[in-house]
Design a protein around this nucleic acid. Structure first.
Length: 327
DNA sequence: TTTGATGT
């Protein structure tokens, strides 16, 4: 399994001791040096960070670099091979957050040690990659502990057993049909969160996942970010509290809600977005999915994440089916 | 169809 981590500090320094894990150390031997900077990102750098020194990453050498930054500013200069190319293909529109980022063959996630579930999971879907593949068999997959997470913070199968909750996929197994290993990897418990089974995971949430897959019939590229939310609720005393159940001896957090933010690329270079929040509870099957659409920034504020940070706002013309005011 | 848990 591949992974990397970055550390950043607001307004002052990024002291980056780049944790070079299997992903880097394994891949950097090929030495095809390439700067990974998208044009939009470069523009942003010119505006906000005219004199920032780079963050060179050469092999296993760690770099400590002072980078003035007001906002999220990951700088990647690194070697490229097919795996890293895929990684940045999935992450084309930026990182929602940088906490314990882990890269799998066909999706990328950020893991929250405190809740024992992911902050977010990113996927890139195309019609081609979703095609039926008789070489991939979901029934051969097993839910598996992710040993790349320290045992203190790792969710185990026994935590879910008898809890009454499904082990719900964040990156859906049905989205990863190119290879059996891709499907297998969606069963790592880092990609799993406790979900209400009947009425949610097996019904309305599944409906939403199918809807997202269908978008690939209209759009050539679909980018999906999925994750948990822990939303405050007013209690009897009139004050707001965030309250959530935990399950198992590892106290795996049961999210109050789940979000899904989707960006679709049109053939003429425009971007459409849809953003959903669904409560982790039984939902009537007849509820239209549009009922769960919300402004993307409301998810960002609650989740502490910034989606599609690298998106050029003038290309984003449609959000939840409505014309945007960005233009 | 895809999403799962549970019991033998």
């Amino acid at each position: 399994m591949a992974k990397f981590e970055l550390f950043s500090g607001r307004g002052a320094f990024v002291v980056a001791a780049v944790g070079v894990c299997s992903w880097f150390s394994g891949r950097l031997t090929e030495r095809t040096l390439l700067e990974l900077r998208l044009p939009e990102f470069q523009d942003r750098e010119k505006r906000h960070f005219p004199k920032t020194p780079g963050l060179p990453i050469f092999g296993t050498v760690s770099a400590a670099t002072i980078v003035p930054t007001d906002e999220y500013n990951p700088r990647f200069v690194q070697t490229l091979n097919r795996t890293t190319e895929l990684f940045f293909q999935i992450m084309k529109y930026g990182f929602p957050g940088l906490d314990h980022v882990r890269s799998f063959d066909d999706f990328v996630l950020s893991y929250d040690r405190r809740t024992r579930i992911a902050h977010w999971v990113f996927e890139h879907l195309t019609a081609e990659r979703l095609k039926y593949n008789d070489k991939v068999d979901r029934s051969l997959c097993d839910f598996t502990e992710d040993t790349s997470v320290h045992s203190y913070f790792r969710a185990k199968n026994v935590d879910y057993k008898g809890s009454g909750f499904d082990r719900g996929h964040l990156a859906a197994a049905g989205n990863h049909r190119v290879a059996q290993e891709h499907c297998d990897q969606t069963f790592y418990l880092t990609n799993i969160a406790p979900q209400v089974g009947v009425g949610f995971n097996r019904n309305s949430w599944n409906r939403l996942e199918k809807h997202v897959r269908k978008l690939t019939k209209i759009y050539s590229n679909v980018y999906v970010c999925t994750g948990p939310l822990f939303l405050p609720k007013k209690e009897r005393d009139g004050k707001n509290y965030v309250k959530y159940q935990v399950i198992g001896s590892n106290n795996v957090a049961v999210p109050t809600h789940f979000f899904k933010v989707v960006v679709m690329e049109t053939n003429d270079g425009k971007l459409h977005m849809e953003a959903y929040v669904m409560p982790n509870e039984p939902i009537d099957d007849n509820t239209p999915l549009t009922v769960f659409q919300v402004p993307p920034d409301s998810i960002e504020r609650h989740a502490g994440l910034l989606f599609f940070d690298r998106i050029s706002r003038d290309k984003l013309v449609l959000v939840n089916g409505r014309k945007t005011t960005y233009v």
